[in-house]
């Protein structure tokens, strides 16, 4: 099995990488949406992130990755409850996955051959405490989207079907990627993503040459390449761990709160989720940079990714919403 392309070796795409790191520092920010051209490393970044994340402690063999033996659901039927260290789960939700696969369902095999009523957990169970990655999220079928919305909101998956009545925790960071040319995302789902980044192909020769060289090295001399980037990956992981600890110490003063509220008002972002996400993202960013207080600089840097997808859209407006956000921030901050 080949290791995924190292996160630190991804050329450019700084905004996308930053957004992913911020959600790793504070998972409650609520996921990343990466929209952009094909072949720009969206999937690569998500898979690379998995290798980068600090491991979690979980009960061995628990279908919902429980953090303590008391949390293991009864239906799991686990006898021995030992703790193990496991990598943070990153679960792929493929297009066209059935409802049964996503939520879990009656285990048909056991029902028919053994006559037992058993629950077969789905992708949502496996993604608990980790990441759920949806490639081509804009092509996801509506009823699956509804399901995701419900679970992402409540943090709990409720299965009521075929005589089963089961609920289990499903708290995950939703990461979506897609190509906007192929379809839009429903606003409700858009709103569930904490951060949104626009990914474009690099336009200058130097960057492209570097992309080609690194990818070629990765494929040709896999082990040497992984070794070469190991240290840098470890450095990012350490910064994430330090950042997580620093989060609690970062108070948001009145001034910061006022700034956040003023920006959201000026942009006319729907709902209050924008304010909360902006604040959390600014805090995580300050933690990432190892700063001791949240300042306007932090807010300014994360505003585009926190609010870009929450604006009302004008169908004929060709300029990206990113520029609109930047303009308003300049006005508010003077």
């Amino acid at each position: 099995m080949k290791h995924p392309f190292p996160f630190s070796a991804i050329v450019g795409q700084d905004e996308m990488k930053l957004a992913m790191i911020l959600t790793a520092i504070d998972p409650s920010i609520g996921g990343v949406l990466a929209f952009g051209d094909r072949g720009t490393g969206k999937s690569t970044a998500v898979r690379a992130l998995a290798a980068l994340l600090p491991p979690i402690d979980m009960v061995a063999g628990c279908p919902v990755n429980s953090a303590s033996p008391d949390d293991v659901p009864d239906w799991a039927g686990l006898d021995r409850r030992e703790m193990v260290e496991a990598p943070t789960p990153v679960v792929d939700l493929p297009l066209g996955a059935t409802e049964d696969r996503v939520t879990g369902a009656l285990d048909i095999e056991r029902a028919l051959t053994l006559g037992e009523k058993a629950f077969e957990p789905g992708l949502l169970a496996r993604a608990n405490r980790g990441y759920l990655y949806v490639d081509e999220v804009n092509l996801l079928e509506d009823h699956i989207v509804d399901l995701l919305l419900d679970v992402a909101q409540s943090g709990e998956n409720v299965v009521e079907r075929e005589g089963l009545s089961i609920r289990h925790p499903a708290r995950f960071v939703l990461v979506g990627s897609g190509n906007p040319e192929e379809g839009e995302l429903r606003p409700q789902l858009l709103d569930r993503f904490g951060l949104s980044v626009e990914v474009t192909s690099p336009r200058d020769v130097e960057t492209r040459v570097e992309v080609i060289r690194r990818r070629d090295a990765y494929e040709r001399d896999h082990n040497a390449f992984m070794l070469r980037w190991q240290a840098e990956n470890a450095a990012i992981r350490d910064r994430i761990v330090t950042g997580r600890k620093a989060l609690a110490g970062l108070e948001a003063g009145d001034k910061v709160l006022t700034d956040v509220a003023r920006i959201c008002l000026a942009l006319g972002a729907d709902g209050l989720r924008g304010e909360l996400t902006l604040l959390k993202a600014a805090r995580a960013y300050a933690a990432w940079r190892d700063d001791t207080a949240i300042t306007r600089t932090h807010i300014r840097d994360v505003v585009p990714m926190a609010l870009r997808h929450r604006l009302r859209r004008d169908p004929l407006d060709e300029a990206g919403s990113g520029t609109r956000v930047a303009r308003v921030v300049d006005e508010v901050f003077g």
Binding site: R38, G39, T40, G41, T200, S201, P202, R203, R208, I212
Partner: peptide, 16 residues
């Protein structure tokens, strides 16, 4: 890399 730029090919996969 220069060729892909000149022909307006966005995806780095093409170059690889």
């Amino acid at each position: 890399a220069e060729l892909t730029l000149a022909f307006g090919i966005d995806s780095p996969r093409a170059a690889l």
